[in-house]
Design a protein around this nucleic acid. Structure first.
Length: 294
DNA sequence: TTTCCTGTTAGTGT
DNA sequence: AACACTAACAGGAA
């Protein structure tokens, strides 16, 4: 699914709502989507949710049984929490996030109980079934390559401009857009926000990492953070609807400058935005502002 | 009706 | 090691 801002939005919503609740039941409709590793149902049932964190584009729920649930929504995953007076929904907008649950895209259902005994459900929906939930002992979480090998988070204090420069220096020949989306290089950036950051920094998506000038590297560093922050501010690109908590909806795409703007005028220079295959993904950029060569 | 496309990885081969 | 390519799957758009 979603990239860092969308996952951050869902994570914050869940952290506000499910921490302290106990998992009383799990129904796995599509077995391949729930990976038990060495654990059993007894490690899950009765466990209390201690916190909900984002790692790269994953959601990590730490449980009182010294275990963790790691969620990855990939392209079309959704997480929907529903109880008597709250609905938190985020992820891919199709099927619509306000569709009744469970529905035909619902593949995993957790039943939760709060301190007052009120029952809630957490539904993991995924149209294309690419997503997964991995259940692991908390102290073994880094053995998941998807967790252990991720690069720095763009909002981690350790990801400084110098660190970015050092990492770029190690991958001088890599195509910059592809590199930004490499989770081992930097955690959480995908197709939307790589387009947006490169547009902000006026860098052509196919430039070699090593060809960027110092000034461009600095602009890109700030552009990555800025585009992600704008995404978070607008609750991501996907419609994350917080029904009964304000009815907010993700509106980031309204604010996008390049992504999905093919043919529309560049907001800086009015030149139509162009699509281009970069690696096996589609880049959107302004051919006038974002020059191929320096 | 085809055919192509997709907000992402994992796995495989070079 | 770095890079390229594709499969996993379902539906919307052209």
């Amino acid at each position: 699914m979603p990239e860092l801002p969308e996952i951050e939005t869902i994570t914050r919503g869940l952290d506000r709502e499910v921490v302290g609740q106990t998992i009383t039941k799990i129904e796995v409709v599509v077995p391949k989507m729930f990976v038990w590793n060495s654990l059993k149902e007894s490690n899950l049932k009765g466990a209390k949710i201690m916190d909900v964190k984002r790692v790269a584009k994953m959601i990590v729920m730490n449980l009182s049984s010294d275990t963790s649930l790691v969620f990855h929504l990939k392209l079309t995953g959704q997480l929907i929490y529903l109880d008597a007076d709250t609905r938190i929904a985020g992820g891919h907008p199709l099927p619509p996030l306000n569709l009744p649950v469970p529905n035909k895209t619902t593949h995993i259902i957790f039943t939760l109980k709060d301190a007052k005994g009120q029952i809630g459900h957490l539904y993991f929906n995924d149209l294309r079934k690419f997503g997964w939930v991995k259940f692991v002992p908390t102290d073994k979480i880094n053995e998941l390559t998807s967790v252990g090998e991720v690069g720095p988070d763009p909002f981690d204090k350790k990801w400084t401009l110098d660190e970015f420069k050092i990492r770029l220096g190690r991958r001088r020949g890599a195509v910059i857009k592809t590199l930004l989306m490499d989770q081992k290089f930097l955690a959480g950036v995908g197709n939307i926000y790589s387009d947006e950051a490169l547009w902000l920094a006026k860098i052509h998506p196919k430039r070699a990492a090593g060809s960027l000038t110092n000034s461009e590297v600095e602009k890109l560093y700030h552009a990555i953070k800025e585009s992600l922050l704008i995404g978070i501010k607008h609750k991501g690109a996907s419609s994350s609807s917080f029904v009964n908590l304000g009815g907010e909806k993700g509106t980031f795409l309204t604010y996008a400058n390049a992504y999905h703007h093919t043919g529309l005028p560049c907001k800086r220079c009015r030149t139509p935005i162009v699509r281009l295959k970069v690696g096996s993904r589609t880049a959107h950029f302004c051919p006038a502002c974002q020059k191929a060569e320096k």
